[in-house]
Structure formats: structure tokens, C-alpha cells
Write a protein that binds this DNA or RNA. Structure first.
Length: 435
DNA sequence: TCTGGGGTCCTAGGACCC
DNA sequence: TCTGGGGTCCTAGGACCC
């Protein structure tokens, strides 16, 4: 039997999550902003119709939003992550194998569904997800990941398809591919698109039919795989288990510019604290850390400064205290007086599995004590919320640098007191998923 | 004037994704 | 006034070695 994959994704996912918990905005335009309330990163169809672009800075569209009663939210990742888990729980009932590709997209193995039933199966899946979670989705089906992605794109752009498109049949592909711009293909970004257009390759059909060798020359092996996948030749497997994570970063724009070393040390300490949580959750450690900071790249008036410093730890660790110490050392080395910093962060590459690294001959560290302390710290913060307990070494006092989330929705899925009261006539299905 | 040839490893930067 | 965060993969080119 030939393989069939389905890509299921949530429409305007973050916005749809907000709508599930606030039925009053079901028909209003909705947008969700990036960290620091910076840019629009999710828009409903109604918001797109107003001309709000992806990634558009909020200060440029604030008036437009006010005039049109757009519901504007800061991002609430806890909520979106919870909703994502609910979707995937449903997907697992509907497919033997599921790969979670991103917070709002999963690949499902549809191979065992007979070809003639796939469209109907996809429609049933959509309806079920909608009923159980309140989230609208689209389903794209194809013999390869790239074609499933493309089918999903077609389903989204053509309302008459009922939210599902199947590109399993080569004859169906022959009809659609010449109608779609090459830049819509998964893996073809702006740079590749420009190169392709120069060669007169304008549609997905053109791309599929170009010689694979030319694709490789133009866009490396990645481009060559894309061409093959468009022909129905699979180059990317379904990955049920997420691979070992290779890196980990915590970076933030500041709510207000940071001008003092004290505030900078506070900020990077908070980032190191968060980094420690992430490392421990994945059972990983790091032996070095890059600390960076820079002024605003948009501000042309004030002097700019951008720099980074790599700090090597005495031994690899996921202990928050070690990470804070390294982050502070890095920040001290990089920080310069007289600049208004807009952003800072820490980046850790080459992560290793905790405990697998070499130990120094004379180990000054009591690793057991450290592990016990971190386990207790994570348990308390897991129970009472992130930040309930913070090491004094972080020296967090003023938080004037803290990222803005002025328009965050309540913690519907994590705080009992934030549960909405069910309204009569509210039938999005959200109640079902909360009981 | 002419001034090895290959390997490997590492890093920085580009490109792409959501 | 106000412009996100966090990943992966690939390649070119330099350092280094025999």
C-alpha cells in the first residue's frame, strides 16, 4: 500500500484558542501579539481582511484595531500548549502514528485509510476536533510531507473544499500544482523564491518539473529533496519521537530599555533560571553558554552596541545556580555603560545528556546535593507556578526590564478561578473539554 | 617564476520553519 | 513612545594535521 500522510493544523491557531474561551469574539476580528506585545503573529480571517499583515508591528496598526473593534491579545503560550495537547490526543485516536510538527501542526499516518475514504475521514476528523475542542482545522493529504503541506494550503485557500484536500492522485496534482505560486511550497523561502523566479520557475508545477540536479545546485540538497517530494517521492520520514534537542535559548526583548548593569544582571539571571528549567525538563546539561545583548536595531538616533561572550562552565551542568553565575559573568564582560539595550539572551548549543559528560579529576561540586535542590525547586514551581521560588542569587528585585504582556487572557486552563462561567447557548464545545 | 595534497574539525552565517 | 522567540539544517572557509 502506498503511503499517505495528513497534515492537520489549527486555523489562526492562537486566535482560535482565545475564541474558545471567549465566545463573544467568535465573529470579531482577533489578533494575537508576539512577546512584548510587539507584532501581530496570529490573525483571524476577519483581521487579515482588514489588511493586518503577518508580523506587523502593533504600534502601526493600533488605531486600525481600535476603529474596527479588533480583539487584541498578548500571547498566552500556556493556553496554546494545553489546547495543542488536546488536539493531539484526538489525532492519536484517529491515526496509528502521529508526528507533532509544531504547536499547531501534526502529521498523521493515513496509509491504512482506503484512498476513496480519505476525504470523508478528514472531514470527520475536522468535525470531531471542532466539536470537542472548539478549534477549527484544515486537513491536507498527500503521499509525502511536502505534498501534504501543499494540500493543506489548498484546503485553507479554497472554502468550497470543506477544509480538506487530498493530493494522493497524480491527476489531481496535475490540476493544482500549476495554479500555485512557487513561494508557497514548504521549504521555499524568500531567497530561493527569487532565484527560481529568475529562472522562470513560477509555479509549483514548474518546480516539480525542474531537473533535480539544478535544484540541488540552486538550493542545496534541501531544494533537491523538495523537488522529489513534489513528484511523490518521499524524502522525509514521519518522526513519532522528537529527536534529542541540540540547543536551547532564552532571549527576550525588554519592556523598557535597560541602561544599568544591575538591571542587565537581573534580566540574564532570570533567563538563566528559565534555561535551567528547560534543560532539566529535557534531562540535558550544557558546558558553555553564549550571553549576548544589543541595542534596538530600529533606533537610528542613539549609539548602537551588539556583542556576545561565550562562558565555559567548570563542568557541564543544568544547575540554575551554575547557569546564573555563568550568565552574570558573560553579561559583565559584554555590558557597556551608556547604551540603551533593547534585548539580551543566553544561548546554549551542544547539549549533552545529563550525567554523560566527563568529570573533572577533583570535583568541587556536590552533584547529588545540587540535583536534589533543583528537583525540589522544580517541584515547588511546578505546583505553585513558575517563579514561585527563585534563587536569591538571581537577585530579582525591580523587574523593570520585564517583557510586556499587557493584554494577556486569563489562565483558563491552569487556574481554577479563571474558568469562565458557561453561558446558555454557548456550544463551542469548550465546556466538554474542561470537565 | 616556481612554492603538495588531502584529510578532518570547527565556526560563522545563511536559509528556512512555525 | 512602540518592531518576537526558538528551533534545525547546510555550506564555505579557516585551522590544523600528516
Amino acid at each position: 500500500m502506498s503511503r499517505a500522510l495528513a497534515l492537520v493544523d489549527g486555523n489562526s491557531f492562537y486566535c482560535s484558542c482565545e475564541r474558545v474561551f471567549d465566545p463573544k469574539i467568535a465573529t470579531r476580528p482577533v489578533i494575537v501579539l508576539s512577546n512584548n506585545d510587539g507584532c501581530a503573529v496570529a490573525r483571524t480571517a476577519e483581521a487579515k481582511a482588514l489588511g493586518i499583515g503577518m508580523g506587523e508591528p502593533y504600534f502601526k496598526i493600533r488605531e486600525l484595531c481600535e476603529q474596527n473593534k479588533v480583539a487584541v491579545f498578548s500571547s498566552n503560550y500556556t493556553l496554546y500548549g494545553d489546547m495543542s495537547a488536546r488536539l493531539n490526543a484526538i489525532y492519536r485516536e484517529w491515526a496509528p502514528e502521529v508526528e507533532i510538527y509544531s504547536i499547531d501542526e501534526s502529521f498523521l499516518d493515513f496509509t491504512t485509510i482506503p484512498e476513496r475514504d480519505r476525504l470523508a475521514y478528514g472531514r470527520d476528523l475536522r468535525a470531531t476536533v471542532r466539536q470537542w475542542t472548539g478549534i477549527p482545522t484544515c486537513v491536507g493529504i498527500g503521499p509525502t510531507k511536502t505534498l501534504a503541506k501543499l494540500a493543506n494550503h489548498i484546503a485553507k485557500k479554497n472554502d468550497d473544499l470543506g477544509g480538506v484536500c487530498d493530493l494522493t492522485d497524480p491527476a489531481v496534482r496535475d490540476r493544482w500544482l500549476p495554479k500555485i505560486e512557487v513561494g508557497e511550497v514548504w521549504g521555499i523561502g524568500g531567497a530561493s523564491e527569487r532565484k527560481l523566479l529568475q529562472l522562470g520557475i513560477e509555479t509549483v508545477g514548474d518546480l516539480r518539473d525542474m531537473p533535480a540536479r539544478s535544484a540541488r545546485q540552486l538550493m542545496t540538497v534541501v531544494g533537491e529533496k523538495t523537488v522529489l517530494e513534489l513528484r511523490g517521492i518521499s524524502c522525509m520520514e514521519l518522526e513519532e519521537l522528537p529527536p534529542q534537542r541540540k540547543g536551547c535559548a532564552v532571549t527576550r526583548s525588554f519592556g523598557k530599555p535597560v541602561k544599568t548593569l544591575d538591571a542587565m544582571l537581573e534580566a540574564v539571571s532570570a533567563y538563566a533560571t528559565r534555561a535551567g528549567e528547560k534543560l532539566r525538563r529535557h534531562g540535558l546539561e550544557t558546558s558553555h553558554m553564549v550571553v549576548f545583548m544589543h541595542t534596538s536595531r530600529f533606533n537610528q538616533r542613539d549609539p548602537s552596541h551588539s556583542a556576545s561572550k561565550t562562558i565555559h562552565l567548570a563542568e557541564s551542568s543544568a544547575d540554575t545556580l551554575d547557569l546564573i553565575d555563568a550568565a552574570k559573568r558573560g553579561a559583565r564582560a559584554v555590558f557597556r555603560e551608556g547604551f540603551a539595550y533593547a534585548k539580551a539572551g543566553i544561548i546554549m548549543d551542544d547539549l549533552i545528556v545529563a550525567g554523560s559528560g566527563s568529570r573533572p579529576l577533583f570535583d568541587a561540586h556536590d552533584r547529588e546535593k545540587s540535583a536534589a535542590l533543583m528537583t525540589a525547586l522544580d517541584a515547588i514551581n511546578g505546583k505553585y507556578g513558575r517563579g514561585a521560588l527563585v534563587p536569591a542569587a538571581a537577585g530579582i528585585k525591580r523587574r523593570e526590564w520585564q517583557t510586556k504582556f499587557d493584554r494577556r487572557s486569563p489562565r483558563y486552563t491552569t487556574r481554577l478561578e479563571a474558568l469562565p462561567t458557561a453561558l446558555s447557548g454557548w456550544t463551542t464545545g469548550a465546556e466538554n473539554s474542561m470537565v
